[in-house]
Amino acid sequence: MKDKKSSAMLHVLTPFIVTLLVVGAAVLAMIKPSDKLKVYFNLAFMDDLKTDPTTAGSGLVIRQNEIIEDYSGETSSTGDVIRPQFGEMYAHLSGSSLSLTIPVYWGTNPELLEMGACQSGGSKLPGEGGNTVISAHEDTYFSELSSVKPGDTITINTNYGEFVYTVSETISFVRTDKRYLQPTEDSRLTLYTCKKDVLSSSDERIGVVCTLTEAKFYTGGEQ
């Protein structure tokens, strides 16, 4: 009777013993490749919320901010900039001949270009001195750029100040020509996009160069 009982116990316990051994062996075997597999799985299936494909992310952290546009406190013509992070919406761009207020993101990549204008990470922030270079798609945010002409004003609102530029010249260059995108001594704003024309090359760029005419850094005091 005792033998029968212990035999029955063994028959019941054995599957659990085998399962533990199998799982243990699998875990040991996966220790080395698991890191690499984790990277591939994270890249392939990055949206933890398992939403539909139009909202699936790429891993880039995009930060939206409320941009101050009706500041009524004290201002100064000099001040400090607040450096944004890659993927952060840090400014609004508007113009006397633009019907849109365009969000401006720090850094350039295809995902950010779908959401607004992008400032080249290597260029200077408005108010920092030097060349501020901003680009956007010609069929969305910069669709009206070709109608901007010398004398028009462009305003950039950030959370550290408001900067007004006046268009000094319209420009046209090929993609490989970097002269308008280089750092400069003077404070300027360079806006550019692709040229739209059936018979033109897709390598052509058009844009405007603007001179800083007014800088108002927010100092925080009440007027």
Binding site: T14, V18, T19, F45, D47, K50, T51, D52, P53, S58
Partner: peptide, 30 residues
């Protein structure tokens, strides 16, 4: 018992993948 163990160990992740619609988090947007 080996068939049952292999079946159950394989079924658990398969059922989880299907129930959570895990593949819907695939990142390609097209």
């Amino acid at each position: 018992i080996c068939s049952v163990i292999a079946g159950v160990l394989g079924l658990i992740p398969c059922i989880w993948l299907t129930a959570t619609k895990y593949y819907n988090s695939f990142t390609i947007k097209q």
